[in-house]
Computed example of a mutant assay.
Amino acid sequence: MRIAVIGASGNVGQRIVAEALSRRHQVIAIARTAPTDSPADVTWKAADLADPDATAAALTGNDVAVLSVRFGNTDFARALDGVRRSGVPRLLVVGGAASLEIAPGKMLLDQPEFPDFIKPEATPARAALDMLRSESDLDWTYISPSMMFGPGERTGTFRLGKDMLLTAADGQSHISYEDYAIALLDEIETPRHSRTRFTVGY
């Protein structure tokens, strides 16, 4: 497939690109500027998500778009507008964990102990999910990582959930960038979560 990755130069985006290439997909990487050490088999296009026309032009002709950006720095409504205009049939969004529930009706972000310094990113991430849930045109999937999300091993062993925060046997809620990328590419290749959110964790 032709997979466009918006935010391909970021920590998660790089792993998604690597996973897609390992599965022999064609990757179109979209960022404001291309890095100097990009794999030779990646096609780079420059686009600013604040400009829906530029976003649409960069995405047109691809089978899937993946959005992997910081929500606090992104006008999500304008980004969605660009995706709609492109005609790309499917959108996968690298989401946040704060909108997951720790108990029925109790969202992580709303708990008194939730760190204030994370809220500037977590709050717009939840708003983006709410925006997608009211979306009538796009076939979207929002993928929330576990609470601890960072570089690690590509194990291929993890669990999927729906709206509840996943906690491993060690009591931690965590997933590596590498295993998250596997789950995302699995969803691209075999769609199971159309127009909904799911989460991945150990």
Score class of each variant (00 low, 15 high):
A77R: 11
T123N: 00
E189R: 04
K106H: 12
E113C: 00
L100C: 06
D179T: 08
G152H: 09
G95Q: 02
N73T: 13
G82Y: 09
F117I: 13
R159D: 12
D130Q: 13
E101S: 13
V88I: 14
S146W: 05
G95K: 06
A168M: 02
R85P: 07
T74R: 00
M164A: 15
P104Q: 03
N73L: 14
A181D: 05
R85Q: 15
D75L: 02
D130W: 02
D137V: 15
G105Q: 05
I118F: 14
F71P: 00
D75E: 01
I118G: 00
G152F: 10
P112E: 03
F117M: 10
P104C: 06
A128H: 10
D110G: 09
T141H: 01
G161V: 03
D170G: 12
K119I: 08
D110Q: 00
Q172A: 14
S68E: 04
L129E: 04
E153I: 07
M147R: 04
S134H: 14
F76G: 01
E153T: 14
A169Q: 11
D163V: 12
T167S: 05
R133A: 12
A103P: 09
L165E: 00
D139G: 04
T155V: 07
D163N: 15
R84Q: 13
P104K: 06
P120G: 06
Y177F: 15
P104T: 11
D163K: 11
A128T: 08
P191W: 10
M107H: 13
A103V: 12
G150S: 03
G150T: 06
F76K: 02
D163M: 10
P89S: 12
A183P: 05
S86K: 10
R90M: 13
P151H: 07
M147T: 05
P112G: 07
L160A: 06
R90E: 10
E101T: 13
D137R: 14
R154T: 04
S136R: 15
R159I: 01
T123Q: 10
G171A: 10
I102K: 05
D130E: 14
L166G: 03
A127P: 00
D170S: 12
K106V: 14
R133Y: 08
A103H: 12
E178M: 06
P104F: 10
R70Q: 08
A127W: 01
A98D: 01
V83E: 02
L138E: 03
G150W: 03
S99R: 08
K162A: 15
T141I: 01
E113G: 05
S99C: 07
L132E: 02
L160H: 14
I182G: 01
L109S: 03
T157A: 11
P151K: 04
E189N: 09
V94I: 15
M164F: 11
D139N: 14
